[in-house]
Design a protein around this nucleic acid. Structure first.
Length: 313
DNA sequence: CGGGTTTGACCAGCGC
DNA sequence: GCGCTGGTCAAACCCG
């Protein structure tokens, strides 16, 4: 487990020497308008290049994407040099990037990374619940339990986790808006990093989605967000009717609209990215700014080949 | 007052 | 077996 995080993130995406490391990256757009402006370059045709049916992270977050699909996709991705690697601890990266325990962020030359884990079971209780159950607040034997966390968890029963999906976003704010409401339930100092990692849970009842947010060790301006689980509901924003605008592709190219859904902007590339080295998921004829709009596509290219295939007979 | 955040403590898993 | 680290809990606190 201890490697999980590192395996996932500790490669500096901006380093130039990972030609050997293929990976999908998902540069998120910054919440910061100025930065956004500096990076995003409106280019409508970018979107045109995409199939309207492509699956986006937003969709992923909305639960419209089947995890099994993702899982399969990632498995497949293992065979592809383009792919990053799985995130969950027990699963070693598919052949790439043995984690560098030095705190380098893994991944690609691209600004962001995405990874997922399929090890998890489908159980929608990724631990939180089990822990809760074991901790009957004010239990009869309360005396000691006042502070102690009892552990009802059965031994030998490895805790199952939801598949995970990590992204790197260049942003000044740690907690990026993604349309969902989150409650922070913990913060921990991260080894070898001056930046703490924050833990959030979806506030929607019965939704067990969690996410972790931390900053890149090498580039503090990069926020690494790891989603775990699948939303069992619609985004509050969507329900509110904002979704139309927020999820609209146009949003991606409209700095003024100040995206609230980074997921939709996943592919924003940091200015420092060396595209040349990217073995990438992006078509070579596409320029960085445009790649921005390929986010989902690019991402899914690795993640959800099946979807792509549909679009590319 | 309800909901979110902070923070210290506990526990599980893993490596040595 | 021990220590370290990640993940989570929950009381206290904060805020609108």
């Amino acid at each position: 487990m201890s490697n999980e995080g590192r395996d996932l993130y500790h490669h500096n995406p901006f380093h130039n020497d990972h030609s050997s490391i293929g990976g999908t990256s998902f540069p998120f757009p910054s919440d910061h308008p100025s930065m956004y402006n500096s990076i995003v370059e409106p280019s409508a045709h970018n979107l045109h290049g995409l199939d309207p049916a492509y699956m986006s992270f937003t969709e992923y977050l909305h639960g419209s994407m089947d995890y099994s699909t993702l899982a399969r996709s990632f498995d497949l991705s293992c065979s592809s040099p383009e792919v990053l690697y799985s995130a969950e601890g027990t699963q070693k990266p598919c052949g790439v990037g043995e984690s560098v325990g030095t705190g380098d962020i893994p991944v690609t030359p691209n600004s962001s990374v995405s990874s997922s884990s399929t090890e998890a079971g489908a159980e929608d209780d990724s631990g939180g619940k089990s822990k809760k159950e074991r901790q009957p607040k004010g239990s009869e034997d309360g005396v000691e339990s006042s502070k102690k966390v009892n552990k009802p968890k059965k031994k030998g029963q490895k805790r199952q986790r939801e598949p995970r999906f990590a992204f790197m976003t260049k942003s000044e704010v740690d907690h990026l808006e993604d349309g969902y409401r989150w409650r922070k339930y913990g913060q921990k100092a991260v080894k070898n990093s001056p930046y703490p990692r924050s833990y959030y849970r979806c506030t929607t009842q019965k939704c067990t989605v969690k996410k972790r947010v931390e900053r890149s060790l090498h580039d503090p301006s990069i926020v690494i967000t790891t989603y775990e689980g699948q939303h069992t509901h619609q985004s509050p924003a969507t329900l509110r009717g904002n979704a139309a605008g927020m999820f609209s592709p146009s949003m991606l190219i409209s700095p003024q609209s100040r995206p609230s859904f980074p997921q939709e902007l996943l592919f924003q590339m940091p200015p420092t990215i060396n595209y040349g080295n990217t073995s990438s998921i992006y078509p070579r004829n596409i320029t960085p700014p445009q790649q921005l709009q390929l986010p989902d596509y690019g991402l899914l290219q690795d993640i959800v080949p099946s979807l792509i295939h549909k679009q590319q007979p």
